[in-house]
């Protein structure tokens, strides 16, 4: 019974949060509601007994991804309301029809799922984390390694893009040095 109560509570909260995210014209509300919604989603993982995925959901989405959004928002005046351009009305109609079809498909999916069997059944006596590790390093080894290489590429690209002239810092320079640099028209990171 408690599981059902928890499920409906968190389902309601999640939907409310994402509804606020989509409809509000205040950027800070959208950011806060999205972060809260991400945390409430992790509750479903905890209810289903997938503790590891629940914690990872919190760490990755709320801790990392949303924090990057927040960094981006630092450059706007977040206390002002955003005026949205009202685009084509047909796009709204099309998107709502598409999402309605998706909802029907999601609810209808259990009908075809009865003859599905698990190729990697649950092993008794090991925890959640170990189970994720085993699947990750057997069935999904190639996607896992490809993702690792993509992350490495992104990291190196980030360093190359941002790392120019990183050895000079305005904070540690003397006034004269800064003046001569300005005269020579050399840009320096603060």
């Amino acid at each position: 019974m408690f599981e059902a109560i928890a499920f409906y509570l968190f389902a309601f909260l999640t939907i409310v949060m994402f509804y606020i995210t989509v409809t509000t014209s205040q950027a800070l509300y959208a950011l806060t509601a999205l972060a809260a919604g991400m945390i409430f989603i992790s509750a479903f993982f905890f209810i289903l007994g997938a503790d590891f995925l629940g914690a990872v959901q919190i760490v990755v989405y709320s801790g990392a991804v949303m924090a990057l959004y927040a960094f981006g928002m630092m450059f706007f005046d977040t206390t002002r309301e955003v005026k949205e351009k009202q685009g084509n009305k047909y796009i709204v109609v099309g998107l709502s029809a598409l999402s309605a079809i998706l909802v029907v498909a999601i609810f209808a999916a259990p009908m075809v799922s009865e003859n599905i069997t698990a190729i990697y059944p649950v092993v008794d006596g090991i925890g959640n984390t170990q189970a994720v590790g085993m699947v990750l390093f057997t069935k999904y080894l190639v996607p896992f390694e490809v993702a690792a290489i993509m992350l490495l590429v992104a990291m190196i690209a980030g360093i190359v893009l941002a790392g120019k002239k990183m050895d000079r810092s305005l904070t540690t320079m003397e006034e004269d040095e800064i003046k001569t640099l300005r005269e020579k028209n050399i840009k320096v990171h603060s």
């Binding site: 945390i39 503790d51 590891f52 760490v59 709320s62 990392a64 924090a67 959640n128 984390t129």
Partner: peptide, 18 residues
């Protein structure tokens, strides 16, 4: 008493930045 205590604590402390 969840199996992933440390991960959970670190995650929630990360959320504390909000």
């Amino acid at each position: 008493d969840i199996n992933i205590g440390i991960l959970y604590i670190l995650g929630i402390m990360g959320v504390g930045l909000y």
